[in-house]
Design a protein around this nucleic acid. Structure first.
Lengths: 222, 222
DNA sequence: GCTGTCAGATTGTCTGACAATCTTACAGGA
DNA sequence: TCCTGTAAGATTGTCAGACAATCTGACAGC
């Protein structure tokens, strides 16, 4: 019996497509935070029925990308300074756990870190689009959590990254020197390769705190 | 201007009530894992319309309590051995982060740990119901994560606890000596009070591994 | 300045319907 | 015997239209 494990057909329901389209619009900055997502207007624009839109909105709300207030509708979540700080605090726990397990991680997991770092650096050198760089940046941090080998922790980190993308979409372009960032990441990986995990952890903490403050400042929050 | 901060009216939509009822049924073991949740049957039983049921199911799916397969319907998630291991691994990261921050935590957060431990011990002595003990047990572990002061980490831990409750609901009653558990928890807190955080962390790791194996065995998985 | 009331807008929920898809069972051909 | 093709029933995915409950904002009245 031959197995076709490599094949898989992805089914896409209308609800999924609507949710994906809304996500894209949010991340591309087409929809500002706080924007109300009216069901009838969306249904008309997308050419689908209201219940379908409703279901897609329920999905977005569950993801935290939007907020539902009873009888007041769904609107795009507005990032708060406290949220950004909390996300960064949580990231430190997750990514820090990955860093501390560098030695126990499988070679593939360690390689994933190297690969994602390379991809990011390559993007910086190639002057890739802001969004591409952002994506690769977050992928790098995701690969750090991947060192734990825990799908759930990776999923949690992905959720946190989503929140950050939402926040970053609110600012046209964050004042961040991509070259410095790339060097910072490279230095982190170097510490890992050297086996100095505690130093790597401390470095990561500083890196995250810096990012946190930059984002808060860029958002114009306190 | 007087403020009425202590007052708040909770609005409960039909969808929320249905979701809550389904959760209760799952945790109480009335619905076995793998049970298909037919929309029409639920709508008829609950006396609501199918779209309303559908929305509630979407919520459960987002919570991970149920799984939706396209055109095949929603069914209650079946716990896998790998999931249980992963949940315990993730718990170690989250609870371990709390334990390591015992000193940096606020007095209130440390007190929350003591209070939840007391509640659990009191429940054991009072021979409280299995479900009450289970709830207080998980609350204790939640309070450990609370030491980090991060709402998101606490929410993640709560999600993990939900998954565990789902798994535990599948076994009538796990073979676990509540008295031993209570002593184990008390010993953990004692290590914290003594300030030996590394020992506490190691103790926690062993505690979680034990729990993991017990659950897997009780579920009859490998 | 505060309260009561009304119209419009929006959501929450229902009813009914139909197409797409899955499951199952059964008949036919190698 | 085993595989393939087909048909019937069940279930989901999506739609249209409708109505009550609720929120918002404006306006009148005290």
């Amino acid at each position: 019996m031959t197995t076709f494990d490599t094949l898989h057909l992805e089914q896409t329901s209308t609800v999924d497509r609507i949710a994906a389209e809304l996500r894209r619009a949010v991340f591309d900055g087409e929809l500002e935070s706080g924007t109300p997502l009216r069901e009838v207007a969306l249904a008309a624009s997308l050419g689908v029925s209201r219940p379908t839109v409703r279901e897609a909105l329920t999905v977005l709300v569950a993801e935290g990308l939007a907020t539902r207030e009873p009888h007041r509708g769904v609107s795009i979540t507005t990032p708060q300074a406290a949220s950004v700080r909390d996300v960064c605090c949580a990231r430190l726990v997750l990514e820090g756990a990955g860093v501390r397990r560098w030695r126990d991680a499988s070679p593939e997991q360690r390689d994933a870190v190297r690969v994602s770092l390379e991809a990011y650096i390559e993007g910086v050198h190639a002057d890739a689009s802001y969004q591409t760089l952002n994506e690769r940046h977050l992928d790098f941090h995701l690969s750090l959590v991947g060192l734990t080998g825990s799908p759930r922790l990776v999923a949690m980190q992905a959720d946190l990254a989503t929140e950050l993308k939402l926040a970053l979409a609110q600012v046209e372009r964050i004042n961040r020197n991509a070259h410095d960032q790339a060097e910072s990441h490279a230095a982190l990986v170097q510490l890992l390769e050297d086996g100095d995990l505690e130093a790597a952890h401390a470095f990561l903490e500083q890196h995250l705190v810096d990012a946190q403050e930059e984002i808060i400042e860029a958002l114009g929050l306190t």
